[in-house]
Nucleic acid binder design. Structure first.
Length: 650
RNA sequence: GCCAAUGUGGCUCAGGGGUAGAGCAAUUCACUCGUAAUGAAUAGGUCGUGGGUUCGAUUCCCACCAUUGGCUCCA
């Protein structure tokens, strides 16, 4: 048989050979580094025997797929260590994940950090022993018997759930440990060179809260110690960017126990940033994208939500007032969305097809009763504000208007400098759980296809996700990950062909008939709280000048130049620049240090020379010495940077 | 909501059954300074909240509140 290798060369063998044997034949070094094989494009175990012509690539831990194999083996080492230290622990599952691996155990008590340290030590021993991982297969009956005898009920359940024709394979490492596993795996536990157990937490068996509570141990493993070290440093670095920490440190927001979970308070600095974003977005929408603005109530009677469907589909997510229906009192609810309120603005007058699309936007505060454990910093809150719009249009206009919505969202993200962070998702209904949604198969299939077509026509790469739609229609969601890799929706564009009928919204068409419009629900920037969090993490607090709450700080060399510093400050403010002056009797070096720590884009040092010549000595976050220049020159320069929303990077 | 960890002055943390400490920040005074920390002094906490045990609780126990991580990535 003829084996074609990665570099195009070929090897001939007269009899079948395993991947690892071929690797040894190529070079011993390669064989030692090998994690898996790639046969005709498919990743296979090193033990796989090849008996016919194929192309073969030996995968090492430098390849993400090889690293996955290494991490999967690390999870087996973890499991063996736990079984050695806690013989009563029951095994469940232990896969490799994006940044490492985990293993879930059924044990009496949760693991503490001390437990994890002990387990790490045991893992090191196992790795040092360097037992070979051996693969073997059993018929179903014997496999079940094998795991029953080992006292592993979860494994028995897993085997029982495998399809009839499945090959049931096991990997053992030395005498002490055998696990049900499809592989692939390294040849020996010795291959797990650099690892760390990072966390432990609870997890449910098969992710089902009605099933057994398990204890999960997370870890990561790398090809070498340097990579591990870099990863652990990266984890530390991430913490420095975490908006929840940095945003509080930079005095942008706070929370207060007595006010409640998910209810952040914005300081003057945080408010300034949000107002800059809001003013920009509102003017942009109104002046350049054809929107009108509304201002509608933050609550309504339950009757409204009964029409909209929220009462049936979204009750748990709402704050309902006077829920127990005291005699004679109305039941009200704080709004979780703006949709029906704006519908009534639309219905206040008659509309012709000539008026459409009718684009109503509102910077709207919403309330959602999230579960207590779901809150997080500024990204998951109970009260938040979005610039939300509802566009009433004819079906013929939908494609062009959806494209405009995507274009606007893209423009906004590009201006913020975060367009590189996002992925697009088509959020579909859940065909397995239709009762959560309104409309039939036909409605969902057609609306979903509509959005799919729009994205394809605009050459947008996207993923599709079941069960992520709104109850009234599918969405184009623009997603971004936070520093911990958790994904949130930043912008949403939703197609709704059913709400208009429920509310009796109509327009008059060319023939004089009253017909139901379609509705696009969309955000341009999404939630301000979440966007601020995103910006904090994206820029690690070093925002572009235009959105900074403090853009310039004036630093007099000593109190002698206070008068001149105040004149400079007044002139800056007069020109709409957010500036302050540090008048304390500290040394200039100290003031500069603080200014840098506060991530202020520009600072102006003023002393004898500057006062005499009417200059300012300009420094910036990007350049320690931008030179001395006249104040008017500096103001012209920074004003242009602010107006253009320039993102300086050098 | 569930599981776990955490909660000590503005921040970072130490301490521990006998009513609290450090550094930084703050305030005051002195210095009046040329590009990443001048010196000295002072002030600041009912140890998250509420109960319980105890002669005595910030420390031990219970409840609640808040913060964080996890609860999806399917042998």
């Amino acid at each position: 048989m003829k084996i074609t290798l990665k570099d195009g060369s070929a090897k001939e063998y007269s009899e079948s050979k395993s991947v690892i044997d071929i690797a040894f034949d190529i070079s011993e070094g390669l064989a030692r580094a090998a994690c898996a094989g790639e046969v005709d494009g498919e990743v296979v175990d090193l033990r796989t025997v090849i008996d016919k012509d194929c192309t073969l690539n030996i995968i090492t831990a430098d390849d993400p797929r090889g690293l996955r194999v290494l991490r999967h083996t690390a999870s087996h080492v973890l499991a063996e260590a736990v079984k050695r230290l806690y013989p009563n622990a029951k095994l469940t599952i232990g896969p490799a994940i994006d940044e490492g691996f985990y293993y879930d155990f059924d044990v009496e008590n949760p693991f503490s950090r001390e437990d994890l340290d002990k387990i790490e030590d045991e893992m090191k021993k196992i790795i040092k022993e360097g037992n070979k991982l051996e693969k073997f297969e059993l018929p179903r009956n014997e496999a079940i018997k094998f795991m029953e005898e080992k006292g592993e009920p979860f494994k028995v359940e897993l085997i029982n759930d495998l399809p009839e024709d499945a090959i049931i394979s096991f990997y053992s490492q030395g005498e002490g440990f055998t696990d049900l596993c499809a592989g692939p795996h390294l040849m020996s536990t010795k291959g797990v060179k650099a690892f760390k157990l990072t966390a432990s937490s609870m997890a449910y068996w098969r992710g089902d809260s009605n099933k057994a509570r398990l204890q999960r141990i997370y870890g990561s493993a790398f090809a070498n110690k340097d990579d591990l070290k870099a990863y652990l440093e990266h984890l530390e670095d991430i913490k420095m960017r975490d908006h929840n920490k940095l945003g509080r440190e930079m005095k942008l927001f706070l929370t207060a126990d007595v006010i409640g979970q998910g209810l952040p308070l914005f300081t003057p600095k945080g408010t300034k940033m949000i107002m800059k974003l809001q003013r920009w977005i509102e003017d942009l929408e109104d002046n350049e994208w054809g929107y009108v603005r509304t201002r509608t109530p933050l609550m309504a009677k339950s009757d409204l939500y009964k029409i909209s469907g929220h009462w049936d589909h979204y009750m748990d997510g709402m704050f309902v007032l006077n829920k127990d229906e005291q005699e004679g009192k109305e039941i009200m609810a704080l709004r979780p969305m703006t949709c029906p309120f704006q519908y009534y603005v639309y219905m206040n007058e008659q509309h012709s097809y000539r008026d459409l699309p009718y684009r109503m936007s509102e910077t709207s505060t919403l309330f959602r009763n999230e579960d207590s454990g779901e809150m997080h910093g500024l990204t998951r809150v109970r009260q938040f504000t979005i610039t939300e719009a509802h566009i009433i249009l004819t079906p013929e206009q939908a494609e062009e208007e959806l494209t405009r919505c995507v274009d606007l969202a893209h423009y906004v993200m590009k201006t913020l400098g975060v367009d590189g962070d996002v992925t697009y998702r088509l959020s579909k209904w859940d065909p397995e759980n239709k009762s959560k949604y309104e409309g039939d198969d036909n409605y969902w299939n057609s609306t979903q296809q509509y959005l799919r077509d729009v994205m394809n026509k605009n050459s947008i790469k996207f993923t599709e996700a079941d069960g992520e739609a709104a109850f009234y229609g599918p969405k184009i969601d623009i997603q971004a990950k936070n520093v911990y890799g958790k994904e949130d929706t930043m912008v949403t564009i939703q197609l709704d062909c059913s709400s208009a009928q429920k509310f009796g919204m109509v327009y008059t068409d060319e023939n004089g008939n009253k017909v139901s419009p379609w509705i696009i629900h969309r955000t341009s920037m999404g939630c301000y709280e979440r966007t601020l969090a995103w910006l904090i993490e994206h820029y690690a607090g070093k925002f572009p000048t235009w959105m900074c709450p403090e853009q310039v700080r004036v630093l007099p060399i000593s109190e002698k130049y206070e008068d001149y510093a105040q004149k400079v400050l007044a002139e800056l403010k007069k020109n709409g620049i957010d500036a302050t002056c540090d008048s304390r009797s500290e040394k200039i070096g100290y003031k500069i240090r603080e200014t840098r720590n506060d991530r202020i884009p520009y600072w102006l040092v003023v002393g004898e020379k500057e006062e005499a010549e009417g200059l300012v000595a300009v420094s910036s976050r990007w350049n320690n010495n931008e030179g001395s220049k006249s104040l008017s020159e500096f103001i012209a320069q920074i004003s242009e940077e602010i107006r253009n929303k320039t993102i300086r990077t050098e």
